[in-house]
Amino acid sequence: MDRAAKDKALLDRIGIDQIARNQRARRRGQLGLGLVFMAPALIMVVGVLLVPVLFNIWLSFTKWRKFTGFGEYAGFANYERMPSNPFFNEALINTAIWVGASVVFPIALGLGMAMFFRNLRGAETFKNIIFIPRILAPTAVGVLWFYVYAPDGLLNRGLGLVSGRDVDIGWLYNDATVTPAIIATFVWQTAGLVMVLLLLGLAAIPKDPIEAAHIDGANRWQIFRYITLPLLMPTLLMVTILSVLAGFTVFDLLWVMGANYPGQRSLALAVFMYFEAFQKGSWAFGSAVAVIIGLVVLCVTWFQTVLQARVDRMTR
């Protein structure tokens, strides 16, 4: 009997095939059980996220407009139409303004407040107050600020008290003021969250390098610039990406606060998409705009992952 045959006979005696079958059956059972436990989440993700997204992508390649063209293939026609639409271009520019503003202002303000409150005793109350707007629904915030900016609202009255004369600025009715006014509301609502995230990031920074810098005679600015800021970079990166996404997909505030502004449809891409689809019934075109928004958001998320990995390597 050669060695191979001997080994096989030994394995047969042990019952290795049976053991392997049992293991496979157990793994199948575990997989089944796992799937049962995952089912609610899977159903949610597939049914509420994946299927609508795929359906939307498919719609963007159809001719669906109001009552017709539901299943008719249109190729890239809806995408080709976008650049020639003046409202799309305006919305694109406004969205870019939103993205820029939603990165710069909440982060500058949030970082300033985080640095200020970082080691301040009794700052908890102030931190909580600053965070409160974040827990309010954007629609409620929009309604609240709509009345703050109203012609006879709090802001004009306040300015009137300060200047000693009647102030009648239609903040939400003028081309020049509507976007800055809504951005200010957005900053008011989001700066608190940015502050909290940056405070968490600051708390995670080890004290040793800062103390060493102190001993070496570094001033506060130098410590901030060369130690705190680089070590805070992973948190700042995450906050920046969140802000970009928030700025790119903003809708609620623009919908509520810009309701009476004649150029509402051009306030941002998300609003433009809503007008095209729901008001004009250009479902396929609206879907194409949604796909563009989704693609940009996807790119930003991918960029974040790559950058995050690089920053992690640098700070490790």
Binding site: K66, F67, F70, A277, F278, Q279, G281, W283
Partner: peptide, 14 residues
């Protein structure tokens, strides 16, 4: 009106 139009248009289209 927008949601309503969406409902009727989608119903007829399908």
């Amino acid at each position: 009106a927008e949601q309503y139009k969406a409902f009727v248009q989608a119903s007829i289209a399908s």
